[in-house]
């Protein structure tokens, strides 16, 4: 039994090692192509890496660079966004993304946020979702311990302490839990990039085509809803449009 168990562990471990080796060799091969300025070939090799079962923020960052060199702005924005999804504070990816944004046709300034929302975003952004998740669980158990201690302690002095402890941990638990939910929602939001040079948006998907306009390649939108072949999206400045599904690429999906 033990042998089988170790065997399985060994197998999965070695499989993972094998995948990593394969990914590493493809990665360095693509990097060499990139150094030789064969960007299209490099991008092709990079795109084969996720098929090995491995991905990384660095991989998507390099893919973004290659796409940028090929002047494929939408793809480039998409890859940088994917890199940033895997590692939210990735400085190089952020930097190159701002560079691309400067060359985009649509210069959408994010709508200014209220002070308290800004503060809250800063707070939840301080830790990653995983850390918030652990903290919220940890404080839930601490809260349980404090309540049990309160219920079963006999001495009044101890009961008082236990009560105070339970109150404080309940407060902290609430805070960590709400932060976790907020960070998770931010992490799971579905974003998309306009992939065609121009997409004609509509204010409504029905026959009303009176209010319409154009979003240009590389614009990042947040998907709110979908209906038929249309997505209801929101741009950074808070405007809502309907755009054809085929004109955008979802960031969460594999390409």
């Amino acid at each position: 039994m033990k042998r089988i168990f170790y065997g399985i562990i060994f197998l999965t471990f070695s499989l993972s090692m094998l995948q990593a080796q394969q990914a590493d060799s493809l990665f360095s091969q693509a990097n060499r192509l990139y150094a030789q300025k064969k960007y299209a070939e490099a991008l092709d090799v990079y795109r084969r890496i996720p098929e090995t079962g491995k991905v990384s923020a660095e991989l998507y960052y390099n893919m973004g660079n290659a796409a940028y060199k090929l002047n494929k702005k939408a793809l480039s924005v998409l890859y940088y966004k994917k890199a940033l999804n895997l590692r939210p504070g990735y400085a190089a990816a952020k930097h190159n993304l701002t560079l691309i944004r400067r060359s985009l046709t649509d210069r959408i300034e994010p709508a200014p946020l209220a002070f308290h929302i800004k503060l809250w975003k800063k707070w939840t952004g301080m830790l990653s979702v995983g850390v918030w998740a652990i903290l919220s669980r940890l404080w839930a158990w601490l809260l349980l311990a404090a309540v049990l201690f309160y219920l079963y302690s006999q001495k009044p002095a101890r009961k008082r302490w236990a009560f105070a402890l339970a109150g404080i941990s309940a407060g902290i638990w609430m805070l960590t839990w709400i932060s976790y939910r907020s960070a998770k929602a931010e992490h799971e939001k579905t974003e998309a990039v306009v992939a065609v040079p121009e997409t004609r948006w509509r204010a409504r998907i029905d026959t009303d085509t009176s209010r319409t306009g154009i979003l240009h390649e590389g614009t990042v939108v947040k998907i709110l809803d979908s209906s038929g072949n249309w997505y209801h999206v929101r741009t950074a400045d808070g405007n809502r449009f309907w755009v054809p599904e085929s004109d955008v690429l979802k960031i969460n999906e594999r390409y």
Partner: peptide, 29 residues
């Protein structure tokens, strides 16, 4: 250093080392 030459335009260069993670792994949380 290793892939210099792509620095024109103030563009940050590609990474030479990658820390792999499983493509299908669902994060523990």
């Amino acid at each position: 250093a290793p892939y210099a030459g792509a620095g024109q335009g103030g563009f940050r260069n590609i990474e030479s080392v990658s820390r792999w993670m499983s493509a299908d792994a669902v994060p523990f949380w």
